[in-house]
């Protein structure tokens, strides 16, 4: 098997000097794929993603991006290497306009960003209409689009989303998933953590079920949806 584009390999670690939350957890994603991490509350889903992004201490195991070991890099350096990250909360600049939010997303770039901005507006047409409005005044779903758009502005080689549908209505959730699929079609691998396991697995090429910081089940989204044990314990029958 060839090395995946991004892999968090056998990660063990926790926050600061606290106890380990992850135990030999492995997560990976390839271009064109959507990988989804699901699991019960407190299973370490967001923690696994933060470990990949360098926001906690990985005591053993490694994180590799396109074959390069990035375990020791800071989150900022990972952004420069091409990782885009959308935090679950506080993921926009509320008093700045939508357009300024996108500009700030591209802060590390020194080249012309107009083309990327057009691409983002193409993906999220509503943002183009509201581009002069303060992002904090938008609805929940629109704010998530701003957040994803901001992360796309660096032209990332990989996009990571931490519970993008938390706190939005089911209709908005479907819409957001559609957008995420569209982003994925542009070739960017997507790794996301989701609370809404069933809907997320439906669009997932690769699914990880975590339980207490360990890999419990791994497979394609379809396989996991059909796995009787996964159905029984996580999807409610």
């Amino acid at each position: 098997m060839t090395e995946p584009f991004l892999i968090g390999d056998m990660m063990t670690g926790g926050y600061g000097r606290g106890p380990d939350i992850l135990h030999e957890c492995t997560i990976s994603v390839n271009p064109g794929e959507i990988a989804v991490i699901v699991g019960p509350n407190g299973a370490g889903k967001s923690t696994a993603m933060k470990a990949i992004f360098g926001m906690l201490n990985v005591r053993s195991g490694s994180v590799r991006l396109a074959g390069e070991d990035i375990t020791a890099l800071s989150p900022q350096d990972r952004v420069i290497r091409g990782m885009g990250f959308v935090p679950q909360v506080r993921n926009i600049f509320p008093s700045m306009t939508v357009e300024e939010n996108l500009e700030m997303g591209a802060f590390i770039r020194r080249d012309d960003i107009r083309e990327t901005m057009e691409q983002v507006y193409h993906l999220f047409p509503i943002l183009k209409d509201k581009r002069r409005q303060a992002a904090g005044e938008l609805s929940g779903g629109q704010r998530q689009q701003v957040a994803v758009g901001r992360a796309l502005m660096t032209k990332p080689k990989l996009l990571m989303l931490d519970e993008p549908t938390a706190g939005v209505s089911p209709i908005v959730m479907d819409e957001l998933f559609d957008r995420i699929i569209e982003v994925s079609r542009t070739g960017i691998p997507i790794l996301m953590v989701e609370q809404n396991a069933r809907q997320a697995l439906e669009i997932a090429d690769r699914g990880y079920v975590l339980v207490q910081g360990r890999n419990a089940h791994t497979g394609t989204g379809k396989e996991l949806l059909n796995d009787p044990e996964v159905r029984r314990s996580f999807l409610g029958g």
């Binding site: 926009i92 600049f93 509320p94 700045m96 300024e100 700030m104 802060f107 590390i108 901001r150």
Partner: peptide, 22 residues
């Protein structure tokens, strides 16, 4: 200006500003 906007961004949301490379 770019620097001015980065100041506003920092004031708005420090963590995200750091993530954005400010």
């Amino acid at each position: 200006t770019r620097t001015g906007k980065s100041m506003r961004a920092f004031s708005d949301n420090e963590d995200l500003a750091l993530l954005s490379g400010i």
